[in-house]
């Protein structure tokens, strides 16, 4: 039982990363009906931006220019990096996807892959082919709760993730932009006639998705402090699986499926040798999709009518 709860905690942390990234895939799909295949690499860029910001802020603090407690450095790092990475998302939308909005979906998908490669190799060119170490912003403390070991980092990671998801939920439900996003899933022609700018909403969606990916990147960096330019590929693919599993365009679905993916991976690794982890985990997901091809919360129809 203790063993189970130990893995549950690990699965929650692991699932947080997937869920945060999957949200970006799902939101963009929800409004533009395309998958932004560069999203995994935006996660990577977010982690690197977080690395830069954290290093910068820590350096300033150690020089005595500013006196800050560690937790505040962490909060600042997350906020500043999310803000900066959102502009990467806006740029990707503006330069990569907007010119292809009316193009066949395949072209847009390929664009995503190319942007991904550009981001990876751009990072290589900029920082060189070495891994960087994410600064440890908070001291690790381990609590023993009835035999289950929980670190403060794990609590922080899960807590911050849940907070961001809740904020996103509020945003979509309560702001006019969120309402416009939901309507944009149905049409791009009528919405402007109600005074809504499609381009603004698209840019905003990319910005939010990228900011969430950046948060995931930083949290990942805190848990596993080694970053490399290709870290976004596998993570991006897996989060993409979560987005599909949750149901394309569904925010709740992406969140739950992200956590589910984390659970499946961790619990498979708990029972089977870890080399078989992904093999078995993704076979299970393949099986789920066979019976529920449109995911948990997706809509059964695939073609949406446009004017």
């Amino acid at each position: 039982m203790v063993f189970f709860f130990q893995n549950l905690i690990n699965a929650l942390q692991w699932g947080s990363f997937y869920a945060l990234i999957a949200l970006g895939y799902s939101m963009v799909y929800g409004i533009l009906m395309l998958f932004n295949f560069a999203h995994g690499d935006i996660f990577m860029v977010g982690a690197y931006i977080g690395f830069g910001v954290a290093t910068g802020v820590t350096a300033l603090a150690s020089l005595g220019a500013i006196v800050l407690p560690n937790w505040l450095i962490l909060v600042l790092t997350i906020i500043i990096s999310m803000f900066l990475t959102s502009f990467v998302g806006i740029l990707v939308e503006r330069l990569g996807y907007r010119p292809l909005r009316e193009a066949p979906r395949a072209s847009a998908a390929i664009t995503g892959l190319m942007i991904g490669i550009i981001l990876e190799t751009g990072n290589l060119a900029l920082l060189g082919a070495r891994r960087v170490r994410f600064p440890s912003l908070i001291e690790s403390t381990t609590y023993n709760i009835g035999g289950v070991y929980v670190t403060n980092k794990k609590i922080m990671i899960v807590g911050v993730s849940l907070m961001l998801m809740l904020a996103l939920h509020q945003f979509v439900r309560r702001s006019k932009y969120g309402m416009a996003m939901r309507a944009m899933a149905f049409d791009h022609v009528v919405l402007p006639l109600m005074g809504v700018s499609i381009n603004t909403i698209a840019a905003m969606t990319f910005a939010i998705g990228s900011a969430l990916a950046a948060a995931a990147g930083i949290l990942f960096g805190i848990a596993y402090p080694v970053l490399d330019p290709y870290m976004g590929i596998v993570f991006g693919w897996k989060a993409f699986v979560a987005a599909i599993l949750g149901g394309r365009g569904s925010i709740l679905g992406a969140t739950l499926a992200g956590f589910l993916l984390g659970f499946i991976e961790i619990f498979v690794a708990m029972i089977f040798p870890s080399t078989l982890r992904d093999f078995i985990a993704y076979s299970i997901i393949l099986l789920i999709l066979t019976f529920r091809p449109h995911g948990f919360f997706g809509e059964p129809y695939s073609a949406r009518l446009r004017l």
């Binding site: 309402m179 149905f186 005074g195």
Partner: peptide, 26 residues
């Protein structure tokens, strides 16, 4: 917008007149 409610249609058409921002929404 097929899966939105009637009143949501009416509200969203007020888009350019709604002036409260994110702070207000949250």
């Amino acid at each position: 917008w097929r899966h939105m409610t009637v009143v949501e249609h009416v509200k969203l058409a007020r888009y350019s007149r709604i002036s409260y921002g994110l702070i207000g929404a949250f």
